[in-house]
């Protein structure tokens, strides 16, 4: 039998807490770090840094709270699938967005025509 979702789980509350409390502490530390770094002058890298920290936090939650550390390939596959599909979505949409001719980019703030649309052209 393949080792499915393990039965080798901690059986007592202290054992469980030993598992999860360090993760929680790490998450809070990262939260503090991301808040502090958001105010630091990082020359335009702030966005990348805070998203990077968010990614680390998400991975911590997924691996330790959502039990991805257990050796179940099926669950890892399911978890990875959506990431791959997200990359399809982002990659190809940005392939369009970043390569559009400049005049075909939307331009903000252009008011709609003040005249009402003509309803009866014929």
């Amino acid at each position: 039998m393949r080792r499915g979702i393990g039965e080798e789980v901690p059986r007592t509350l202290p054992a469980i807490l030993r598992h999860v409390l360090p993760v929680w502490l790490a998450l809070l530390v990262l939260l503090g770090a991301s808040l502090a770094l958001a105010y630091a002058p990082l020359h335009g890298l702030n966005g990348a840094v805070s998203l990077g920290i968010a990614a680390v936090k998400a991975i911590l939650v997924a691996v330790f709270f959502m039990n991805l550390r257990r050796p179940d390939p099926l669950l890892r596959l399911a978890g990875a699938a959506s990431l791959i599909w997200m990359s399809f979505l982002f990659a190809l949409t940005f392939a369009d967005l970043t390569a559009r001719a400049p005049q075909t980019q939307p331009q903000a703030g252009q008011g709609r025509d003040s005249e009402p649309p003509m309803r009866q052209p014929f």
């Binding site: 703030g109 252009q110 008011g111």
Partner: peptide, 12 residues
């Protein structure tokens, strides 16, 4: 100042 809303498409 911005002319958004003051200049419509034909005028632009």
């Amino acid at each position: 100042p911005s002319f958004a809303g003051l200049v419509h498409e034909e005028e632009m």
